[in-house]
């Protein structure tokens, strides 16, 4: 018993030492965006403001659902001030669950209204888009539409990520919102009938297409561009870009202030910084080529301009509302 008491005493001292109050202002941010790109942005924020950023990053393994679940679980005693998500539908779901508080950042004035919440619960910036990646050793005429994924000539040659996580889940929900449940369900069922491979994630789709395991697949601009930079035998294109076509889904990063955030003022400063042109510019210049939403931001020539992309015309609130329906149907269809 004496040893246990001694051990407990040592642990208490360790906690006390580890949790000593820091006098420097700080902000806690949960980041679902890739650490490789988000960490330098946060470091720069610290250099500019002196505010220490304590970040928690999500992992590819948990498909951005880890931090979202953590935010919900911590609602009674929030530890985070800011949530930087790498997509939008999940952010809206969390907003609807009361995880966030309102904040209209002055930096968001240049962001188009379609990419921000009117009540200030979240704001979008630096977008990705869904693309078709294809192996140039195997194809000269790649599929140009997501409808090609259900055509017999492509049977067994194409791959998508499991539409239960990340941007693929949002893409599926967007199709339910754009087409209606019936048509979307037929399309999802046809994917299964056409032997479209359902892989673990968008990065796996990229890798499997690059290795020639599959001829083409659906992924995101950041994944696809990484493979191109690495010299893999792949190219990518935006699907459904013909006149009157469906267009591709454009998914912004989103940032939100956590309700009852312990460091709300520092959190607002971080949000202001993330929504500014400097961050959109740096994310555009990175390997992940995030597409700036602010029209005034200059980006390298290889980064597509928003005005050059035919984007799917969907309301993101409708997409979020369809998440459960789409994921339920996808789970029952794909997880057989």
């Amino acid at each position: 018993m004496k040893h246990i008491v001694q051990t407990m005493a040592i642990l208490v001292v360790l906690i006390a030492v580890g949790c000593g109050e820091s006098h420097a202002p700080e902000v806690v941010v949960y980041v679902a965006h890739d650490e490789m790109y988000s960490r330098p942005v946060l470091d720069t924020f610290t250099q500019k403001t002196g505010i220490i950023v304590r970040a928690v990053y999500d992992t590819e393994a948990s498909k951005t659902t880890g931090l979202a679940n953590r935010l919900i679980a911590e609602q009674s005693r929030p530890r985070a001030d800011v949530f930087w998500n790498n997509e939008i539908a999940q952010t809206i779901v969390l907003a609807n669950k009361g995880v966030f508080g309102p904040y209209r950042s002055p930096s968001a004035s240049a962001i188009p209204d379609a990419f921000k919440d009117l009540t200030g619960m979240w704001t979008g910036f630096a977008a990705r888009a869904r693309v078709i990646i294809y192996n140039t050793d195997m194809l000269t005429e790649p599929p140009a539409s997501i409808m090609d994924f259900v055509k017999p000539e492509w049977r067994g040659k194409l791959a998508i990520a499991r539409p239960l996580f990340g941007t693929t889940a949002t893409h599926a929900a967007a199709l339910f919102a754009a087409w209606g449940d019936e048509r979307a369900k037929i399309f999802v069922s046809d994917l299964v009938s056409n032997d479209v491979a359902i892989l673990a994630g968008n990065a796996t789709v990229r890798d499997m297409v690059a290795s020639g395991e599959f001829a083409a697949g659906l992924t995101d601009t950041d994944d696809a561009n990484g493979a191109v930079i690495d010299g893999k035998p792949v190219k990518w294109l935006f699907p459904d870009q013909e006149e009157g076509g469906l267009g591709t889904l454009v998914l912004p990063n989103t940032v939100a202030l956590v309700k009852d955030a312990p460091n709300a003022d520092a959190g607002k400063k971080l949000i202001d910084y993330l929504l500014g042109p400097e961050v959109e510019g740096s994310l555009a210049r990175a390997r992940s080529i995030q597409i700036p939403l602010n029209p005034s931001v200059e980006s390298p020539p290889e980064v597509p301009h928003m005005s050059s992309i035919r984007a799917m015309q969907v309301d993101f609130n409708d997409v979020a509302a369809k998440m459960d329906t789409a994921m339920d149907f996808s789970r029952n269809t794909f997880n057989q």
Partner: peptide, 20 residues
């Protein structure tokens, strides 16, 4: 990944966060 204190991490988490 759900329990790491803010600003700290283990290298298993770091590894998986880089696996994208």
């Amino acid at each position: 990944v759900l329990l790491c204190p803010p600003g700290q991490s283990t290298f298993a988490v770091r590894l998986f966060s880089l696996m994208h």
